[in-house]
């Protein structure tokens, strides 16, 4: 399969030959694994099961893939829904795992609050941020995770979580406000 092929082209080929699905799985496995881990799926085997189910579901529903959407948004949506089903079946509450994206989020929180504090002054541990995350609603956490840890645009988040773009903006605004209230200076209002 030529490496420059777009996701959409691979989808069209997969509809004719299932073997053509392999490059799509390879393209998205790492990204989606990281996303699932960020959503709080901690056990590797669980992650693999969810991914397998997500790719099977994607394959079964390839004909419903809307070419006006980015394939990645559609794939993230399926993985997200699979993860939520997993948490529901385990009666577990998803716990966001924070990593390199936290710095972007903290910068955003700080910048909106004060323009005098330097990034170097940030001394907030991931644990403190993770603790602050517990004040958020599941949807607020999902939006923040997709925006700051997966670097998704508002339109993509809207397509992944199946909520209007306006709702994404509102959720982000409220999530950041709630985080600031839960965080110490210089983030708190």
């Amino acid at each position: 399969m030529p490496p420059e092929m777009t996701d959409e082209e691979i989808v069209r080929r997969t509809l004719l030959d299932k073997e053509a699905f392999t490059p799509l799985i390879e393209r998205y496995e790492a990204k989606l694994t990281r996303y699932l881990e960020r959503l709080g799926v901690g056990v590797h085997e669980d992650c693999e099961d969810i991914l397998q189910n997500a790719f099977i579901k994607a394959y079964r529903n390839l004909n419903s893939f809307d070419q006006t959407l980015a394939f990645s948004s559609w794939m993230y949506r399926i993985a997200h829904n699979e993860a939520m089903s997993f948490f529901r079946s385990r009666h577990a509450r998803p716990q966001v795992v924070l990593d390199e994206g936290s710095e972007t989020l903290l910068t955003e929180l700080r910048d909106e609050n004060s323009d005098t504090t330097h990034l170097a002054e940030l001394r907030l541990s991931r644990e403190e941020l993770a603790k602050a995350f517990t004040v958020l609603t599941p949807l607020q956490r999902d939006v923040l995770t997709l925006r700051f840890f997966e670097d998704r645009s508002y339109a993509e988040i809207s397509d992944i979580l199946e909520v209007p773009t306006g709702t994404v903006s509102t959720l982000l605004y409220r999530a950041k406000r709630a985080l600031r209230e839960a965080l110490p200076e210089p983030f708190s209002p």
């Binding site: 799985i25 496995e29 099977i56």
Partner: peptide
């Protein structure tokens, strides 16, 4: 890559 292949292989086998 090896793990990627593994997942892709498992998915295709299941299909």
């Amino acid at each position: 890559d090896h793990k990627d292949d593994q997942l892709a292989q498992k998915v295709l086998e299941r299909i």
